Amino acid sequence: MDASIKGEQARTGILGAVDAVDIVRLGFLQATVMIWILRTVPFLHNRFAVYGARGLDHTSAAKKDGSSPVSKLLDWFAGLQVSHGYFTHFYIFATGSMAFWITQLATKSRVFQAIAANISEEHLKNSMSIQQVIVCMVLMAIQTARRLFECIALSKPSKSKMLVAHWLLGFYYYALITVAVWIEGTGAIQSHKFTLADFRITQVPSLRTWIWVPVFLLASGVQHDCHYYLSTLKTYTVPTHPAFARIVSPHYTAECVIYLSLAFLAAPQGQLANKTLLCALSFIVSNLGTTAHITKGWYQRKFGEDSVRGKWKMIPFLF
């Protein structure tokens, strides 16, 4: 039997002939499509696209769609809510997930092996380097740990609610993203034995690392500063922090930059960016963009047109 055929058979695991990399990408793209459906279909938008204080103006909007069985079912599902403070659960889960995957990769344990057995020869061959895997895992761990710290240290008691659907979507996203940061490096991970020496700086970082690690850290700093500032506000009001001068939701802008930098840092050999993380970015931009759009409208209604005049919602010069 041909060696390549044997190799393919050896990689046919629990997913059969389906590539695990493609499954992760498809997971993000499906979530992105769902966000756009919720954003553009009025009777879904009124029920599921808003939450928290910004959703208070929409509480009666869903009732305008009639009393059909489908409408009643959607109203019931939209009525399933949890405390807005449950955001903390996302980062507890994400931080724990990162710890789990770091252990799996370092020891090449059973779950990692099951995923690796379902990755195509093409993706294994065109792999991230082991240095890229380490850098991206460390940065992602920093991101999740920082957000967990902010949720614990900066959050204040609130009566705001979050839809159960949004709560579940958060777990879905972090389950995927904590895999996405390393899965295209599986080929390098399989052939490498991790030691403490891997964390020594023994060679000059690549130009890609010199550019995008500082971008990641800068965006993280800006986001933290925005979160800290918002936590100091006594009531909902128009932010006066410099980061909010021209952008309605600069903390969302920073989030997009954080994951854009990871997409470039994790680019496999011969590629400009990591396609799996670009799929993740499509979801992040769509999801946060929807919330930024709603936020701008809320500011207009509550504080007047002048409060947001001349401001972009999230992406300078574009949106």
Rank of each mutant, 00 (worst) to 15 (best):
V138N: 03
E150C: 09
I152N: 15
V138A: 12
I142V: 13
I142Q: 04
A165Q: 13
A165G: 15
Q143E: 08
Q143H: 14
I152L: 15
H166I: 05
L148F: 08
K161M: 05
S160V: 03
C151P: 01
A165E: 06
L163K: 04
M162E: 05
K159R: 14
R146E: 04
K156A: 14
F149L: 12
A145Q: 07
H166W: 04
A141G: 07
R147D: 01
A165Y: 12
S155D: 15
M137I: 01
E150T: 06
S155C: 14
A165W: 07
M137F: 02
V138W: 03
K156R: 15
F149E: 12
K156P: 10
S155E: 14
R146V: 09
L154C: 12
I152A: 13
V138D: 03
M162H: 06
M140E: 10
K156D: 08
C151L: 03
S160L: 05
E150I: 06
A141Q: 01
A145H: 07
M140G: 06
A145F: 09
E150W: 05
R146G: 05
M137G: 03
M162T: 04
Q143T: 03
L139I: 00
M140P: 00
K156T: 14
M137Q: 03
L148K: 01
S160K: 08
H166G: 03
A145I: 06
C151Q: 07
K156N: 12
R146Y: 04
L154T: 03
K159G: 13
I142P: 00
L139M: 01
M140D: 04
T144H: 06
S158K: 08
Q143K: 03
A145W: 02
A145M: 11
T144Q: 10
S155R: 13
K159P: 07
S160Q: 12
I152R: 09
M140K: 02
A141I: 02
R146M: 07
K156F: 11
S158E: 05
L148M: 08
F149D: 10
M162S: 07
V138P: 00
M162P: 00
K159D: 09
E150P: 00
V164C: 13
F149A: 12
L163D: 04
A165H: 15
A141L: 10
V164R: 03
V138R: 02
P157Q: 13
